[in-house]
């Protein structure tokens, strides 16, 4: 099969997963002012939960649903247990310093990441294990020709597409979605409208946790599962979010797909060991050429 199509399809299905990760990052950044470096640690953990359930003879789908729910709970827990107490420490000297206010949550999220990885290692021995796909991961055939896409790729693209549609409906058509957008844009006016901004914030952590948990379930059939497998996904997701401007949900999704193609084409036309370098170069280009993101407007960037 021709290599362009191979790269294109791989880029689309990987890009769909990156879009989820990037969406999760942007949700929490907009909603809570935190870039959550623990995000894929949470996803790794919930994927292990699913894997454990499947080992205990639960069906794929019940494990799938339970993993998503645990993703939401874990996200909410991170907010309620750690991030909220941190941000309410107004009198702390260090938090009075402007730059430390964004730095401290980042450090906290790194701590969470470390703890989750270690716990996963302790519970599940840290060895690499496979994670099943609900549909075959072999290439599809049309008559006698091999297509460059697998059934699982189609599944991934379908699930992500559905998720994005549901997310869009949630944000544009429901009151809760409006409350979330409003509190990200202007917490004070939102509070003055009687909305419990704290709960809304916890909800964005939960939704982000679900999205990244889904990403974990979708990516591990190809990469296998170990405490470290999702690290790369975080890096790519972050880059995608920056490409999208870090504040725009639509931009973050677009950024995810762009990165999917960049990485797929580097993989096919260059060599896999160039991927990291390509990501770094791409990130730096994005930061310098369009710091406001592909869809962002200049004043939106909150740095």
């Amino acid at each position: 099969m021709n290599s362009f199509l191979t790269a294109f399809f791989a880029g689309t299905s990987q890009g769909a997963i990156y879009a989820l990760v990037s969406l999760g990052l942007v949700l929490v950044w907009r909603g809570a002012g935190v870039v959550n470096f623990a995000q894929m640690g949470q996803a790794m953990f919930t994927t292990y939960i699913a894997s454990q359930l499947i080992q205990n003879e639960y069906s794929y789908w019940s494990a799938f649903v339970i993993a998503l729910i645990s993703g939401a709970l874990l996200g909410a827990l991170v907010d309620l247990g750690i991030m909220r107490p941190l941000s309410s420490r107004k009198n702390s000297l260090l938090l009075n310093s402007q730059s430390m206010r964004t730095t401290i949550p980042v450090i906290a999220s790194l701590g969470i990441l470390g703890v989750l990885k270690a716990l996963a290692g302790i519970f599940w021995a840290g060895e690499e294990r496979g994670f099943p796909a609900p549909v075959p991961t072999t290439g599809l055939r049309l008559g006698n020709t091999d297509l460059a896409i697998t059934g699982f790729d189609l599944f991934v693209i379908g699930v992500v597409f559905l998720t994005l549609v549901l997310t869009t409906i949630f944000f544009t058509r429901t009151g809760m979605g409006l409350a979330m957008r409003a509190s990200a844009l202007n917490p004070e006016v939102t509070r003055l409208s009687g909305i419990r901004v704290g709960s809304v914030r916890t909800l964005s952590w939960a939704i982000s946790g679900t999205a990244s948990s889904l990403a974990g379930l979708l990516v591990t059939p190809k990469t296998n599962l170990s405490p470290n497998t999702l690290d790369l996904l975080l890096i790519v997701g972050f880059t995608a979010a920056v490409v999208g401007g870090l504040t725009s949900l639509a931009g973050s999704v677009l950024g995810g797909f762009i990165l999917g193609y960049v990485i797929a084409f580097v993989n096919v036309y260059s060599a896999p060991e160039n991927v990291f370098l390509a990501i770094l170069i791409f990130l730096l280009l994005a930061l310098f050429l369009r710091p406001q993101g592909i869809l962002g407007s200049k004043e939106v960037r909150r740095v």
């Binding site: 950044w29 964004t102 990501i279």
Partner: peptide, 28 residues
Amino acid sequence: LAAARLSGPYLAGTTLVMALAIPSIAIR
């Protein structure tokens, strides 16, 4: 020079990407 334009999470993320990418140069 690059970082002077960045702060907070941008810088943290960018340096994290760098932490992964720089050692891979040795392999490239």
